[in-house]
Amino acid sequence: MLRRFTSLVIQNRGIKQQVDIKWVRPDYVPAYKPERSGDLEGLPKDTVKFTALDFSLSDEIKDAPEAVKKIFSVAHLGRKEYRTLVQKDLIDRVRRHKYDENTSETRIARITGHIRCLQETMELHPKNVNTKKLVQELIDRRKKLLKFLRQYDYKKFEWLLEKLNIEYKGHPETYHKLTRKESLRKLTEMHCDDIRNKKLSDYRNLLESQQGPFLQEKLNTLKFIRSEQIELQLPITVNEQDIAKVEQQLQEWKLRDKQKQQAKQKKKNILLD
Rank of each mutant, 00 (worst) to 15 (best):
T221L: 12
S37D: 09
E217Y: 10
L164V: 09
G78W: 01
W159E: 15
L255A: 13
Q87S: 14
K49C: 06
Y203K: 01
V86W: 08
F214D: 06
I139M: 03
A52L: 06
L250F: 15
S37C: 06
T47Q: 04
L146Q: 07
T121H: 14
I236E: 12
C117P: 00
N12K: 00
T47R: 04
I230T: 05
Q248Y: 14
K147F: 14
L53N: 06
S7Q: 03
V19P: 00
L134P: 03
K199H: 13
H191Y: 12
V48P: 05
K147Q: 11
I236M: 09
E189L: 07
Q87M: 15
L134A: 13
T112K: 00
E35L: 14
L271G: 04
E182M: 05
R107Q: 11
Q229S: 09
R25D: 05
K49E: 11
R4M: 00
L164N: 06
K80C: 04
P213N: 06
R116C: 01
Y99N: 08
V246L: 12
Q265R: 13
P44R: 01
L2Q: 03
Q11D: 00
D92E: 08
L255V: 07
Q136A: 13
E228R: 04
I21Y: 00
Q136E: 14
R196P: 00
H97P: 09
P34Q: 12
E167A: 06
K181N: 02
L145T: 02
D100E: 08
W159R: 07
A244V: 08
N130A: 12
E167V: 02
P65F: 14
K198D: 09
V135K: 02
E240W: 10
K33F: 14
N197S: 13
L146K: 01
E105Q: 10
G14S: 09
P172C: 08
E182W: 05
D140W: 03
A109Y: 03
K260E: 11
I115L: 04
Y152C: 01
E217D: 14
Q241P: 07
N165K: 12
K267Q: 11
P30R: 01
K245F: 15
D193H: 08
D193F: 05
K62A: 14
Q233D: 07
L272K: 09
H76V: 04
Q233E: 11
Y99W: 07
D140I: 01
Q259E: 14
K49D: 10
H176R: 05
N165S: 11
G113C: 03
I230N: 08
L187Y: 02
L160K: 02
K62Y: 15
R142F: 05
A263S: 11
L272T: 05
